[in-house]
Amino acid sequence: MNKPKLWTKDFLIVSAANFFLYFTFYLLMVTITIFASEKFHASPSQAGLASGIFVVGTLIARLFSGRSIDSVGWKKMLYIGFILFLLTTLLYFAVNSLTFLLVNRFLNGAAMGVASTATGTIVAKIIPNARRGEGTGYYALSVTLAAAIGPFLGMFLMQHSSFNMNFIVCLIFLVMSFVAIFFLNVPKVELSHEQLSKMKGFSIHQFFEVKAIPISIIGALVGFGYSSILTFLTSYAKEINLVDVGSFFFIIYAVFTLISRPFTGKWFDQKGENFVMYPSFLFFAVALILLSQVHQGIMLLVVGALVGLGYATFSSSAQAISIKVSPKNRMGLATSTFFIFVDGGVGIGPFILGFFVPLIGYRGLYFSVGVVVFACIFLYYFLHGRKNRQRRSELVELH
C-alpha cells in the first residue's frame, strides 16, 4: 500500500515560510537586548523587557487569531500576518527611543503570532492523517533550525557589522517568503451554519480548543523547563568557564534533532505517541539534571544532544497530539491553544526562575527544573497516556 505523499510543493513552502518567521524571531531575540542597551542605554531589566515583550504580543495575537482563522480564511490570515510582520520589522530602522522600541517589539510579536498560527493550521491540513507524526516532526524542524541558525548568525553579524545588518537580513528573507506563499495552495475552509454560530459569542470555546488543553498544560511545563536553557545557559557557561563550548550548544541540539526526526515521526504514526513521548520526557529530564553537574565541555555538548532528542521530540509530537485529539474543523484553534500554553511557559519561566538563581544557583536551578520535567511523565500518563494506551488496545482487539 502506497503512503500518501508528504513532501509536496505546498508542504515545502509553508515549512520554509515558518522557518523564516522563527529565524527572525530568534535572531532578534538574542540581539535586541544589546541593541536596547547600547543605543538607548537601557538598564538590564529594560533590555530584558524589550526582548520578552515580543512573546507577550505573540500570546495575545494567538488568542484572537486562533479563534478567527476559520472565519477569516487560512491563507488570508497568513497574508495579514506576513504583511504586519514585514511592516513591523521594517519599523526597526525608524526606532528612535526605548518606548518606540517596546511598542514595536510588542506589535512585531503580535504579527508573528498571527502568521505562525496560520502556518501551523495550514500545515496541519496539508499533512496526510496517515503521516501526521512524521509530517509534524519534519515541519517542526523549521523551528529547530531557526533556533540554531538565527542566534548564531545574529551574534556573528553583531561582531562583524552594524545592528541594521540584522534587520536587513531578516527583511530579505521575509520578502522572499512572502513572495513564495503566493504560490501556496490552501484548501478552502467550509463551515456549516452550526459551526459558524458556535464561533459567535464570548466563551472559553472561542479562544481555546478544550480537547487540546491537557497536552497543552504539559507543553507549558516542559516549555517552562526549556526557558531555563534559553535564558540562563550563557550566564551559566560563563560561570563555569565554558563560554566557547557553550556557543556550539544549539548547533549540537539542531544536529541531533535532525538525526532523530525521521525515526521519531514514523514511530509516532506506527507505534503510537506513547512510544515517543515517554522517552522524550526522560531524555529532557536527564539532560537538565546532567546540566546541573557539568564541569567539562564535552558534557555540555552531550546535554545539547539530549535536549535535541528530548525537548525537540516532545514539542513536535505534542503539537501532533493536540491536532489529533481535536475536531478537524478546529485545527486552527487546537494549534493556537497548544502554542499559547507553550509560549506562556517559555515566557513566564525566566521571570519565575530568576527569583531562584540567587537562592540555589544555576546548578540547583537546573537540577530542580529537571525534577519538574521528570514529574511530567506521570502527569502525561494521567492526562493522555493511559487513554491512548486503552485506545490502541481496543484497536488491536478489533483486528
Results as ranks from 00 to 15, higher is better:
residue 298 I to G: 12
residue 245 V to E: 09
residue 300 L to M: 15
residue 287 A to Y: 01
residue 243 V to R: 06
residue 298 I to A: 15
residue 261 R to G: 13
residue 254 A to R: 03
residue 263 F to M: 07
residue 303 V to I: 01
residue 295 H to I: 11
residue 262 P to L: 02
residue 291 L to Q: 04
residue 274 N to A: 07
residue 242 L to F: 05
residue 267 W to S: 03
residue 254 A to T: 09
residue 261 R to N: 14
residue 283 F to S: 06
residue 291 L to Y: 02
residue 299 M to W: 14
residue 249 F to R: 07
residue 290 L to G: 02
residue 297 G to D: 01
residue 261 R to D: 14
residue 297 G to W: 01
residue 239 E to W: 01
residue 260 S to Q: 13
residue 265 G to M: 02
residue 270 Q to I: 15
residue 245 V to M: 05
residue 290 L to D: 05
residue 295 H to K: 15
residue 250 F to L: 10
residue 301 L to H: 07
residue 290 L to W: 07
residue 253 Y to N: 14
residue 244 D to S: 13
residue 265 G to D: 09
residue 269 D to H: 10
residue 283 F to P: 04
residue 246 G to P: 00
residue 262 P to W: 06
residue 256 F to K: 07
residue 263 F to N: 02
residue 240 I to S: 03
residue 288 L to K: 01
residue 282 L to A: 14
residue 242 L to A: 11
residue 250 F to M: 10
residue 301 L to A: 08
residue 283 F to M: 14
residue 288 L to R: 00
residue 247 S to Q: 13
residue 262 P to H: 10
residue 275 F to L: 11
residue 247 S to V: 10
residue 261 R to E: 13
residue 264 T to Q: 08
residue 269 D to L: 10
residue 252 I to D: 09
residue 246 G to Y: 06
residue 267 W to Q: 12
residue 303 V to M: 00
residue 298 I to W: 15
residue 275 F to N: 06
residue 302 V to F: 14
residue 291 L to V: 05
residue 255 V to D: 08
residue 268 F to G: 04
residue 239 E to R: 04
residue 241 N to C: 00
residue 268 F to Y: 15
residue 266 K to L: 05
residue 270 Q to G: 02
residue 296 Q to S: 10
residue 269 D to K: 07
residue 240 I to M: 06
residue 285 A to N: 07
residue 259 I to F: 12
residue 270 Q to H: 14
residue 288 L to S: 04
residue 244 D to N: 13
residue 258 L to Y: 09
residue 254 A to V: 08
residue 302 V to D: 02
residue 301 L to E: 09
residue 268 F to D: 13
residue 239 E to N: 08
residue 250 F to P: 03
residue 293 Q to W: 04
residue 302 V to K: 00
residue 299 M to I: 15
residue 269 D to F: 13
residue 244 D to I: 10
residue 269 D to W: 11
residue 246 G to S: 12
residue 278 Y to S: 01
residue 294 V to C: 08
